[in-house]
Design a protein around this nucleic acid. Sequence first.
DNA 1: CAAAGCGCTTGATCAGGATCAAGCCTGACT
DNA 2: AGTCAGGCTTGATCCTGATCAAGCGCTTTG
Lengths: 252, 252
Amino acid sequence: MSGRKVISLENLKVACKNCSLVTLCLPMGLEPEEVEKLDRIVRRNRPLHRGDHLFREGDRFTSLYVVKTGSVKTYAPSEDGGEQVLGFHLPGELIGLDAIAKNSHHCSAKVLETSAVCEIPFEDLEELSSSIPSLQHQIYRLLSSEIGHDEDMLTLLGKKNAEERLAAFLLSLSERFKRRGFSASDFYLSMSRHEIGNYLGLAVETVSRLFTRFQDEGLVKVERKHIQLLDIERLHCVAQGEQRDTGKRHCP
Amino acid sequence: MSGRKVISLENLKVACKNCSLVTLCLPMGLEPEEVEKLDRIVRRNRPLHRGDHLFREGDRFTSLYVVKTGSVKTYAPSEDGGEQVLGFHLPGELIGLDAIAKNSHHCSAKVLETSAVCEIPFEDLEELSSSIPSLQHQIYRLLSSEIGHDEDMLTLLGKKNAEERLAAFLLSLSERFKRRGFSASDFYLSMSRHEIGNYLGLAVETVSRLFTRFQDEGLVKVERKHIQLLDIERLHCVAQGEQRDTGKRHCP
DNA sequence: CAAAGCGCTTGATCAGGATCAAGCCTGACT
DNA sequence: AGTCAGGCTTGATCCTGATCAAGCGCTTTG
């Protein structure tokens, strides 16, 4: 037990060049010596626990954050106590990009489970990026891909019905876990049903009913927070809104 | 008539430093000499007409575009002929930011009315930005603010009801016209009801009914594509979802 | 000028998903 | 072990906004 803990602390301090996320994260596409320079500005803080905030809406913006292990949700709180969940972030994903524009955070970020997070002071990063063109390019790319992702979410919220949304959500997680070397068909949901519903613009009850229905149709196996995707191909069909009759036949 | 045309062509060719958008557009915050350098890479093409495409989804990405006059819509086409409208772009707004990540366009961009558009070859811009830190910073800011804007739209689509959406939409246009020196309370809609509905995740009929209702409530005056906002303060209340009883009393 | 066509409005009906209301399960705390 | 609270599920009902269906009016075109 304590042995495992030491190992995981060890992992926390690992340099970018030895980090398993090197192909997903900021260093992607950089030369080793450039990664070295980047490494020098990265801060590796102690692990955070469920419920801890990385930052809150309105906080002064100083750093970007990258999830190293665990998961983080970002959300826009509203005056009346409600919120809109903006995203769930897995290892290698950058958080805080929306804060650069106004120099203050546009949303809040809360840790969903015990997580390690790298902190990258943005002034340092910006300065470094003007001397490393490929780093500058990588930052442009990351910002741009965040825009592309948000646009996909706009289409999801603007055009898709409840089951298409949930299917797309599960497939998105599946893809992302896969890229990180985890199982694409068997994973834990670190967020609550309520948070899933909030993210997808649905009521909790709807999410719950859909999980049950997907299970009845043999698409998934649900056991509390543990999900198994049993028929990814047909889930894709559902996400696309195809073949919505019996739920038994495969789509083209 | 031909006199006016000459003047407008004149305007098309105006250098960044003389352009009225200098405080909104890419050059914002740059030194005159830096604007000069930027100016040299900008291409000013002949005006485009209603229905012309700047680019289509999947096209190779080479340039960003800035609306100079007129308006442009971006949208994500789907296989079945449908589309999701992603945005309406007014003078000074940058288009194509989502294409940087994959080097190909993630959406299509279509001109809504006769428009002048500046083209900025991205390779040139990127190269220039590594030698001009304030330009690099400005690009980071613009990308980030696009992300922030998209996140606001996620909240709109995820949480707001039909009338809140339409009110927020009108106020957004109002704000943006105002910043550009146009009237904040009296403007033309260059997009159709159908496109508004698509953008807001609503059916055309719903948009139409809401315009009528807003007019009956004295919030706006609608005459085809010409809109007057008669009570901006109350429109804000509607957009916030406050005081939804009689529609007559002012909100706090 | 007539006719067509498209965009918009208005009315009637329908349905997907929200809301309301229990009840259940699980995990945390005493 | 017993109790409690929060998260989840399930059922019943309601309501917002979609869909279906006309009809109108402006603009375009022959």
